[in-house]
Design a protein around this nucleic acid. Structure first.
Lengths: 213, 213
DNA sequence: ACGTTCATGTTACTTGCGGTAACCCCAGTC
DNA sequence: GACTGGGGTTACCGCAAGTAACATGAACGT
């Protein structure tokens, strides 16, 4: 029971855990988030109790699964946000990165944000609390970036947080709608959102004959 | 089986349905969205199969329940948006109306948007597809208002839709975060969001020593 | 007055899921 | 060779969704 042996077992357990997560990934992406623990266990070639030994409960498994994708997405967003370019260009690049990600792998997106659909059976109303965590993390990170890099005068801390969560929410809702309806190209969507952020709403004139908005 | 009799029965069935919905409302607001059909039936003083006769399945019941609250909320939002005042004032009033609603009845909000928490058992991951419908409806309605009342030049249809969904998403995410953390007053939140919409993001200067954003 | 219908309600069941207890087996160790 | 402990399984519990089959009682036609 010395340290080397312990780390050896730890290592083995971690490898197992990763394998299980990959199996779970396959099943969830194939069957939707309503995938049963039995199905996941079967895909991994083992049985339920092992899953429970590794992840505690279904929430734990799903959380671990969500964390993987979430971390990956956040990394690419950070990269886009840190690219050397003008502010507006970086904003557009970040929006585009997010939208490209959800466009490229809608299955993952649906799992993270809309747990419950996709599965034909649709037996219950399965959800995870995945969406909240991801949205929150993105909001907090963006808030940090805004506060760090922008000169907002007094109250900048609160303001940055509100804006961080607000902008992330805007991106999320618009992306969600866009993914469902595909009413325009990604580039157009990015432009429209950036325009909104850039104050075109306030600058717009009223339409003839009525009070604007 | 003439018409009068039929409408009579229809009337009775409708009343029943409303009573059941009210009972369901009480239970869901008390026990969270994880409330079982048995519990709802018990609260209504009857048993499960009747619920199923009226609503088909749990999804139907929850959808009906959600529709009620959704309609009510949308009505008040429309009212705020139609009040006679300057554009920015109306925008702020609408944001405030939404935030006041979720602040006044967080239980309802959680049911509509975060189905799955609150229940102590937390056995599964119950969700409804309520949030999407509500967000979508709000987004579409706002898009319509924007398109009708604002002069946005060419491409105004697409633009209005993107903005409608984007703004709704911003409001939703910011409100959700705010409701959880209560980092500031409602009025401050409203002001910060309106400032964001009014282009203060684009107008802000970079902070000393780094590229902004 | 009597059987027929039809909505309303019930009991009792099936199915399927999340989660767990108890047992199994095989490697390595003293 | 008995002993311990991690990886594995079977068989089960509890519970919730959803359903089938039966019961009751008021309105109707004859």
């Amino acid at each position: 029971m010395d340290t080397t042996q312990r780390t050896e077992q730890q290592r083995s357990a971690d490898r197992r855990r990763r394998e299980l997560l990959e199996a779970a990934d396959r099943v969830v992406l194939r069957d939707g988030p309503g995938a049963s623990m039995n199905a996941i266990a079967a895909e991994a070639g083992i049985t339920k109790p092992i899953l429970y030994r590794h992840f505690g409960d279904k929430g734990g498994l799903y959380a671990a699964l969500a964390k993987r994708h979430t971390d990956a997405l956040l990394d690419s967003l950070r990269a886009a946000l840190d690219a050397p370019a003008e502010r507006r260009e970086r904003v557009e690049a970040t929006l585009d990165t997010y939208l490209a990600a959800i466009e490229a792998r809608p299955q993952v997106y649906r799992f993270l944000m809309h747990p419950a659909e996709g599965s034909p059976s649709e037996q219950g109303f399965d959800v995870g609390k995945h969406s909240a965590p991801l949205l929150r993390r993105m909001g907090e990170e963006l808030a940090q970036v805004i506060e760090d890099r922008l000169d907002l005068g007094p109250g900048s801390h609160q303001l940055a947080r509100v804006w961080g969560h607000g902008i992330v929410g805007m991106m999320h809702a618009a992306g969600d709608w866009w993914l469902g309806e595909r009413p325009c190209s990604r580039a157009e969507l990015v432009r429209s959102l950036a325009d909104l952020l850039w104050g075109r709403l306030a600058a717009a004139g009223d339409k003839a004959g009525g009070p604007g908005f």
